[in-house]
Design a binder for these strands. Structure first.
Length: 446
DNA sequence: AGCACA
């Protein structure tokens, strides 16, 4: 008897087993493909795919040992190697006699994905970036993020399993496109499994959890009181807590910026409830109130640093206000409550305000995505730049991420806007291929 | 291209 312990770990001939070990698989390999591969030789009773660190190994278990032997024998003498998606697959008997399928929740498809963000700077990936990335595949209902021993993780809830699966198939193992991350942030790779959850519980909108189905969900108290982590942004800089009320200051105000111009500009992102203008530090500032935080976030991201008029005039600087509900005592040319239909207009420009069909405006009004359903008159002063003009959605060109969580855009029309030049091809093809996702780094680095 | 528990 030769000593067993001196045997090398991998021998060229394993003792037969009805379980086969497969290697060099494409990492996208599915259970179905394994079954297809084994079917000609017998009944495949169990499989396990995406095994190993590179997810390029798998196991096939046949009902009968002879079937496994048939498959090994066939490919041992075949001139054509076994292939999956054009890749040569190497087969051998497994050193185990059956597949132990710890079929955990991670393998059972569901509408909620468990996303692990890998990388040095994983925790610097914002919930907004995650939302943007996953929105390319369908309406994202909710996202929660948290830190576990596994690292920085997120749960992403879709409407259904199919949408979740398409996102998982396209994104698992891929890296978040560089241009979505701050410059100094290193590569962040997504590892995705299914979660057992079907409906996440999001109590507040915060920097770590969002409910995109409920625009009226209150902002987390913890996000308001400046409690450590929640207020630290991508740069490690302090973030102001998000708010449904924006504070806009206007730089280089060569032209008068009227209440109506502001209303027009800010209405592009959702219903504006109230605006109050006032003078501060020799300039003009305005508070703009939306019904919900998300809309304000979108408007802020889209408008910050942009000019209302061409030529660098009336540059907007936007921050979050600590207000949540403005007190508008009277409607005039400096302040207005659009939620009150018949508020008397004092000292204003009736030719403009009087024509605004504002009676329907309010938190519950349906906003159809066209920026100006309540088309105001042209402002008395120069036309706002083309990008902001009436009827022209102000989202294109230089603003990569603006409308991504606008609750007023139906999900279907969101998709193409969500990630310009990024993932449209995979959206429409339904069967994403790695070559169709250029911005994503391959999961296999060599 | 080389054996699974997440």
């Amino acid at each position: 008897m030769a000593s067993v312990s001196s045997q090398p770990q991998f021998r060229y001939t394993q003792p037969p087993s009805k379980v086969l070990h497969l290697r060099n698989l494409p990492w996208e390999c599915t259970e179905e493909e394994l079954i297809e591969l084994g079917k000609p030789f017998g009944k495949v009773v169990n499989t396990k795919c995406n095994v190993g660190a590179n997810r390029n190994q798998a196991f096939i278990e046949f009902a009968d040992l002879n079937q496994a032997i048939a498959m090994i024998s066939y490919y041992a003498s075949s001139s054509e190697p076994a292939q999956v998606r054009g890749k040569t697959v190497y087969l051998q008997y497994s050193n185990r006699q059956e597949i132990v399928n710890n079929k955990t929740t991670a393998d059972v498809a569901g509408n909620v994905l468990l996303v692990t963000i890998e990388g040095e700077d994983a925790r610097l990936v914002s919930i907004d970036v995650l939302h943007l990335v996953f929105s390319a595949f369908g309406f994202v209902h909710k996202i929660t993020t948290f830190e576990k021993t596994a690292g920085f993780q997120a749960l992403v809830q879709f409407s259904d399993t199919e949408t979740a699966s398409s996102a998982k198939n396209a994104l698992d193992g891929r890296s978040i496109p560089r241009y979505l991350l701050p410059e100094h942030v290193g590569p962040c790779t997504l590892r995705i499994t299914y979660s057992a959850h079907t409906d996440l519980s999001v109590k507040f909108q915060s920097h770590r959890s969002r409910d995109y189905t409920n625009p009226y969900l209150p902002v987390a108290p913890s996000a308001i009181d400046g409690n450590g982590q929640l207020t630290v942004g991508l740069d490690g800089k302090k973030l102001e807590p998000e708010s449904n009320v924006l504070l806009a200051s206007i730089e280089n105000m060569q032209y008068a910026v009227t209440l109506d111009v502001l209303h027009m500009v800010f209405s592009a992102f959702g219903p504006v409830q109230k605006i109050a203008m006032f003078d501060k530090n020799g300039g003009v500032q305005a508070l703009i109130q939306y019904p919900d935080v998300q809309t304000a976030v979108v408007a802020k991201e889209a408008l910050e640093g942009h000019c209302i008029y061409d030529g660098g005039f009336c540059k907007l600087h936007i921050s979050y206000s600590r207000h949540t509900d403005l007190s508008i005592k009277v409607n005039n040319d400096r302040s207005r409550d659009y939620t009150i239909p018949n508020n008397p207009v004092v000292n204003s420009q009736p030719s403009i305000l009087g024509q605004q069909p504002v009676s329907g405006m309010g938190p519950t009004v349906q906003y159809n995505g066209a920026p100006f359903t309540t088309t105001p008159e042209q402002p008395a002063m120069p036309q706002p730049s083309a990008g902001w003009g009436p009827g022209v959605p102000p989202m294109h060109q230089s603003m990569p991420m603006q409308m991504h969580n606008n609750p007023y855009m139906p999900p279907g029309t969101m998709l193409p806007q969500v990630a310009p030049g990024m993932m449209q091809s995979s959206i429409h093809s339904g069967m994403p291929q790695s070559s169709m996702l250029p911005p994503y780094g391959s999961g296999q680095m060599r």
